[in-house]
Simulated scan of single mutants.
Amino acid sequence: MLAYKNKKKGFVDAFSLAEILIVLAIMGILIMLVVPNQTGVASRTKSLEAQQELKMIHNLQYAYFLQFSKYSLDLQTINYIPHKSVLSGGTANYEISIIEATPAGFKAKAEAVVDFNGDGKKNIWEIDQEGVLKEVQPD
Rank of each mutant, 00 (worst) to 15 (best):
F65Y: 12
K55R: 15
A63Q: 15
V113W: 03
Q67S: 13
Q51H: 05
V114T: 13
A108M: 00
L48K: 10
A112Y: 06
E53H: 11
A92L: 00
G120M: 07
K121I: 15
L54G: 00
S97A: 10
L75T: 04
G89R: 01
A50Y: 05
Y64Q: 05
H83P: 08
K84T: 15
T91D: 11
F68G: 02
N117C: 08
E95W: 11
Y71F: 09
K122D: 04
G89L: 05
N117H: 02
I78P: 00
Q51Y: 03
F106S: 03
E95S: 14
A92D: 08
Y94L: 04
N79P: 06
L73T: 12
Q52K: 13
S47M: 03
I98P: 04
A112R: 04
A108Q: 01
Y80G: 00
G118W: 07
T102H: 08
N117W: 07
A101S: 04
R44V: 09
A101K: 03
K109D: 04
S47G: 09
N93R: 08
N59C: 08
Y80S: 09
N79M: 09
T102R: 01
L48G: 14
F68N: 12
M56Y: 08
Y62E: 14
G105P: 01
N59A: 15
L75V: 01
I78S: 00
S88G: 11
A104C: 07
S85M: 06
H58M: 06
Y94Q: 02
E111V: 09
I78Q: 00
H83K: 15
A108L: 01
A101T: 01
E100D: 12
E95Y: 12
L48S: 14
L73V: 10
K109W: 08
K109Y: 08
A92W: 05
A108G: 06
L66D: 09
A110I: 04
T91V: 14
A108T: 11
S85T: 15
M56C: 06
E95G: 10
E49Q: 07
E95V: 13
A112L: 04
A50Q: 03
K46Q: 11
M56E: 13
A92C: 10
V113R: 05
S72G: 04
F116I: 11
F116R: 09
L48E: 14
G105K: 10
S85I: 08
Y71D: 05
N117E: 06
Q61P: 02
F68T: 13
V113F: 06
N79A: 13
D115S: 02
I96S: 01
T45Q: 08
L54A: 01
I99H: 06
K84N: 14
G89S: 08
F68I: 10
A50R: 04
V113M: 03
Q67E: 14
F106E: 01
T102W: 00
E95R: 15
A110D: 07
F106M: 02
L66A: 09
D115Y: 01
F65I: 06
T91W: 12
